[in-house]
């Protein structure tokens, strides 16, 4: 009897906590279809008007495309360079290798975008990288690479060197070894780092806000901040609709990768 009561109490508590955290999601799912959304969750009087207004906005769709460009570009740079660096770091005995890695990791987490804002802007100006997607991709890659290398090195460390040696004995060139053996074996790690990078870039506001002056080039995270009414109030209808569109690609990506790799993102391939 007492255990039953305790379980009812526990379940009620957990449900309340879940409901608390689920509310914003519910709002995100319902508000875009509401003609006049407020900061509350209500059954909408169903309308697609908000989507129509958003389609007419000159910046909304283009900003999503810009987000895709930035995220994909950064993911490509980060995955390629992190893979090469992690592979080299785990195969070549370098004095002070681990210290170097930890130092990079530490510095990249201490010196955040906000702290490095001014020097990065000055550097970008000097290099004529202001107002270009390439500039944002490079700056974001620089910030994400230390962590990406750190994550991937775990995967390359867990891959026995005998795989590569076997390929070498059978005559494979270094490039063939990389293509036939190393990349397929650490593919789950590459996927993880790729997704993590996309998610980071997708939600990043500061760097694109700082480095892209032209609203035509701004990504969704920046454009989101322009949805205000003439009175300076946030336009909840547009913001919620845009937020829904903004989150769909990330959710889709997670679902896709989860199906492909089952979220076994740890410890490399089982041998």
């Amino acid at each position: 009897m007492r255990t039953a009561l305790r379980r009812i109490a526990a379940t009620t508590f957990v449900s309340l906590v879940l409901a608390f955290f689920a509310l914003p999601m519910l709002w995100l799912a319902s508000a875009p279809f509401n003609a006049d959304p407020k900061i509350n969750v209500s059954l909408p009087s169903f309308t697609l008007e908000n989507f129509r207004v958003l389609m007419d906005d000159p910046y909304a769709l283009r900003s999503l495309r810009n987000s895709v460009i930035l995220a994909a570009g950064t993911a490509l740079v980060v995955v390629v360079f992190a893979a090469l660096a992690a592979y080299a770091l785990s195969r070549v005995r370098l004095p002070g290798r681990d210290v170097l890695l930890y130092l990079l990791l530490l510095l990249s987490s201490i010196i955040t975008g906000t702290a490095a804002m001014v020097p990065i802007f000055l550097l970008a100006t000097q290099l004529h990288l202001v107002d270009s997607h390439l500039g944002v991709v490079l700056v974001l890659s620089g910030g994400l690479l230390p962590t990406a290398i750190f994550l991937l090195k775990d995967f390359t460390d867990a891959t026995p060197a005998s795989y590569e040696e076997a390929a070498r004995v059978f005559g494979a060139s270094p490039l063939q070894t990389l293509r036939h053996v190393v990349v397929p074996v650490i593919r789950p790690g590459l996927a993880m780092v790729g997704i993590w990078t996309v998610a980071q870039v997708w939600g990043d506001f500061l760097m694109p806000f700082l480095l892209l002056r032209d609203p035509d080039k701004a990504p969704a995270s920046v454009i989101m901040y322009t949805f205000y009414t003439e009175g300076g109030q946030p336009d909840l209808a547009l913001i919620s609709t845009f937020s829904l569109l903004y989150s769909v690609p990330v959710v889709a990506m997670y679902l896709l990768v989860s199906r492909r790799y089952g979220f076994r993102f740890h410890g490399g391939i089982k041998r």
């Binding site: 026995p160 005998s162 795989y163 004995v169 005559g171 060139s173 036939h180």
Partner: peptide, 17 residues
């Protein structure tokens, strides 16, 4: 190694997973 015409079996077999 590739030009020496040897076949090798590794201790952990090193089969490509």
């Amino acid at each position: 190694p590739g030009l020496r015409d040897v076949g090798m079996v590794f201790q952990d077999y090193a089969l490509f997973p």
